[in-house]
């Protein structure tokens, strides 16, 4: 039996670079962008490169008033959009300067028809994506690419809630654990923060008549704690009886009771229909949480 030839030195290979390695913030031309930039600066931490993109949808055709040739109307429309974007970016640069940072931000133009797809393709190279939570009323009223970036990019997404001011990296972290691949990915994606955190709590919401997934999750907690201990993270695990309440209620209550700075959860659901991109728990968390969420799909 051929054995693999080892060419490494006897000592373990450890990389000097830790962290997400490339944080991208996506802006939306709304005032909330200021919070998104503050959150990116605060959460990214020392030495992790980050930049912000403002995706600009460029329509291929616009209404032209009588007497104006279509090409000219289109050119004027594009120019107006670019100017709005530049003004917005100037405002964001002032925000960043106030925080003592230089903003590396660019307005990136995409054809309107392929907006979501192009953003997702660009974002796949990033280590972490930071997005602002969409406005209250409905998911589709917010940026059209929000759902797709969370579910189709394959990267962890930090959702910054509308009313929060984030001052520093998370110190107290709540992990919503469900024995599904998404939750597992979210937990491992959050490792750079978990290592630096002061308190990490894993919460499993167990319902009455627990489903198989929940039973398995409860059974495996010791091994999970041992695994995280190998990564240098000490955790406590709480299995909370949900008493027929929805799991997001339990998670949000636990987060507030432990004064968490961040909730880590897997984003369940299917991408196919945009409006129903997420399962109920994920959607409720995005709408209701006043804490930043790290979601992985």
């Amino acid at each position: 039996m051929a054995t693999p030839v080892s060419v490494s030195s006897p000592a373990p290979l450890v990389s000097a670079v830790d962290g997400f390695g490339g944080v991208v913030a996506l802006l939306t031309m709304e005032p909330h962008d200021g919070s998104v930039i503050e959150a990116t600066v605060a959460m990214a931490g020392e030495g992790w490169p980050w930049r912000a993109w403002l995706p600009l949808a460029m329509p291929a055709r616009v209404e032209c008033p009588w007497g104006v040739p279509p090409a000219q109307a289109l050119a004027l429309d594009h120019l107006a959009r670019r100017q709005d974007a530049l003004a917005h970016l100037a405002m964001m640069r002032r925000t960043a300067a106030r925080l003592g940072q230089t903003l590396s931000c660019a307005a990136v133009e995409f054809p309107e028809r392929a907006l979501a797809k192009s953003i997702v393709a660009r974002v796949r190279a990033a280590g972490l994506v930071v997005l602002g939570a969409p406005p209250e009323r409905a998911m589709v009223a917010g940026p059209r690419w929000f759902d797709q970036v969370v579910s189709m990019s394959g990267r962890p997404v930090l959702v910054v809630p509308r009313c929060a001011r984030i001052a520093g990296p998370p110190r107290r972290i709540l992990i919503a654990w469900h024995d599904r691949p998404e939750a597992c990915r979210a937990l491992h994606d959050a490792l750079p923060w978990l290592r630096a955190a002061a308190a990490v709590r894993i919460v499993i919401a167990v319902g009455y008549g627990a489903s198989r997934a929940q039973r398995q999750a409860v059974a495996g907690t010791e091994r999970l704690r041992a695994h995280l201990a190998h990564h240098g993270v000490s955790t406590e695990v709480a299995c909370v009886d949900s008493q027929m309440r929805p799991p997001e209620d339990i998670l949000l209550e636990e987060a507030y009771s432990m004064a968490a700075d961040l909730i880590v959860a897997g984003a369940s659901g299917r991408h196919r229909t945009l409006a129903f991109a997420f399962g109920g728990t994920t959607l409720s968390l995005i709408r209701r949480s006043r804490l930043p969420l790290l979601l992985a799909s």
Partner: peptide
């Protein structure tokens, strides 16, 4: 950015901080 190689204490349970 370079790779740094830390000497390991064989058999110790101490964990290097950035173990992939």
């Amino acid at each position: 950015m370079s790779v740094s190689i830390h000497a390991s204490a064989t058999g110790s349970s101490r964990v290097a901080s950035h173990m992939p």
